Amino acid sequence: MEIVATSLIAVLGTLLGSTLTYVFQRRTSLRAEQFTRVERLRQERIDAYSAYAGALTEYRRGQMDRWFARNDGRAVEAETLHEMRREAQRLRTAAMEAMFRAELLTHSTDLHGLGRQALKEIDRIPDARSRDELEPIRDTSRASIYDFVAASRQHIPGTADGGPQ
């Protein structure tokens, strides 16, 4: 009888040990998966937000080049102006693609609004009729890009002012 009891205790101990090992390994595995998901989202957001800010900056540069070519007082061929307009359109398309990617990675309507506002501010650059009109539009467009970047930090986990670490 003692042998049966000893065997039964050994079997129950083994089952309990196996069950506890499974529970702890499963918990560890879930934590690792969650960490991987959060880190992947973090990296994707960093890539998307910085790509969008870069695309906005390039689009702004293209608009400024176009404005100066058209309004600088030097004679510029119509073909060159047309090429610059096409380049600005290409840069705007690239900025919009980057904007869509950034918007897909966050649910913040505030961040979406800041990104779209920056694009609108840059769109206004060709409308300036003089250098005096250009300066405030230029400053506002630059500030809008900076505002988007500053706000995007709040949506990147693990940054100083971002989400949970």
Rank of each mutant, 00 (worst) to 15 (best):
V4G: 00
A5N: 09
T6H: 07
S7N: 10
S7M: 12
S7W: 15
L8D: 14
I9Y: 07
V11G: 00
L12P: 13
L12S: 14
T14M: 13
G17N: 04
S18L: 15
S18A: 15
T19P: 04
T21K: 11
Y22V: 12
Y22E: 09
V23P: 00
F24C: 02
Q25V: 12
Q25H: 09
Q25W: 05
R26A: 08
R26V: 10
R27K: 12
T28M: 06
S29P: 06
L30Y: 06
L30F: 02
Q34I: 05
Q34E: 15
Q34D: 14
Q34L: 12
Q34K: 14
Q34F: 01
F35G: 00
T36P: 02
T36D: 14
R37G: 00
R37E: 03
R37F: 00
V38D: 12
V38N: 05
E39N: 10
E39L: 12
R40C: 05
R45H: 00
R45C: 02
I46G: 06
I46C: 07
I46F: 01
A48E: 02
A51Y: 02
Y52D: 05
A53Q: 08
A53H: 02
A55Y: 03
A55F: 00
T57D: 10
E58K: 08
E58W: 03
Y59C: 11
Y59M: 13
R60G: 06
R60I: 10
R61V: 07
G62F: 03
Q63I: 04
Q63D: 11
D65H: 01
D65M: 10
D65S: 10
R66M: 14
F68S: 08
F68K: 01
A69M: 13
A69V: 09
N71I: 02
N71T: 07
N71S: 12
D72C: 14
D72W: 04
G73L: 03
G73M: 03
G73C: 09
R74N: 12
A75G: 05
A75N: 10
A75K: 05
A75E: 15
V76Y: 02
E77R: 10
E77C: 09
E77I: 06
E79I: 06
E79N: 13
T80F: 05
T80L: 14
T80P: 09
H82T: 13
H82M: 11
M84R: 08
Q89R: 07
Q89T: 08
R90T: 14
R90W: 10
R90Q: 15
R90E: 14
R90M: 11
L91F: 01
A94L: 08
M96S: 09
A98W: 04
M99H: 07
M99D: 11
M99F: 09
R101I: 03
A102M: 09
E103T: 04
E103V: 04
L104H: 02
T106K: 02
T106F: 05
H107S: 07
H107C: 00
T109L: 13
D110M: 11
L111T: 02
L111I: 10
H112Y: 02
H112N: 02
